[in-house]
Amino acid sequence: MATDNILKNLILKVWRQASPKDKGKFVTYTIQNVSTGSSFFEMLDLLNDDLIRKGDEPVAFDHDCREGICGTCSLFINGKPHGPDNLITTCQLHMRKFKEGETITIEPWRSAAFPVMKDLIVDRNAFEKIIQAGGFVSVNTGGIPDANAIPIAHDAAEESMDAAQCIGCGACVAACKNASAMLFVAAKVSHLALLPQGKTEATRRAKAMVAKMDELGFGNCTNTGACEAECPKGISIANIARLNREFLVAKFQD
């Protein structure tokens, strides 16, 4: 392990908002003696420990697995979704990425589709509705042929896996100036369309998911590429091209 140092002083500008209806504001805190080996959330744990002991309200934030895979955590840190490092979620961000005395600005995802519930917690239920509209293969449990009955080319499985890695955190939407959910939808459509099992209903799936996305008020994609740049799993915008293709086929079939 790398040797850890202590950051003696950090200044935190944290978004505080009591409820969805509250206007919200930044509150400034100082925090002492943070180990550079600590994760960003371990730093926030320290802040909350301090706030509770002083009789203040701790900062509410979403987190769960703390190993970069559940997609629960969010946060804009110094203006970037999941903070200054690349290809990680906020929970994998470590304090060695910050400097002594630095001011760190912490905000929730900023998107109309993800309303703030409290402090740094947002409501991402819109993503659930999109998946429920078609983000699956329509098979019931049981009555399935042997797993090796349909060979799948190695590269197709790998390409599908690249897209399937999406953790549904919402950084793509948060990073997009239009608040578009195209990368999220495209990742799911590609994951399944690249496999024979998912190909059968690929156009139907694309159509249903896009319709739901539009209905929920996500913005349009204008190909800025901001989503790909901020995706903690490095999901490529090439998937959006594949989604557009599937969607076009669906249109022709109508």
Partner: peptide, 18 residues
């Protein structure tokens, strides 16, 4: 079998088998 049918992208050999 069930997971493959659901579209779980398990690792494959070059011959296409699991």
């Amino acid at each position: 079998d069930q997971c493959v049918a659901q579209g779980v992208p398990f690792a494959r050999e070059y011959g296409g088998l699991l």
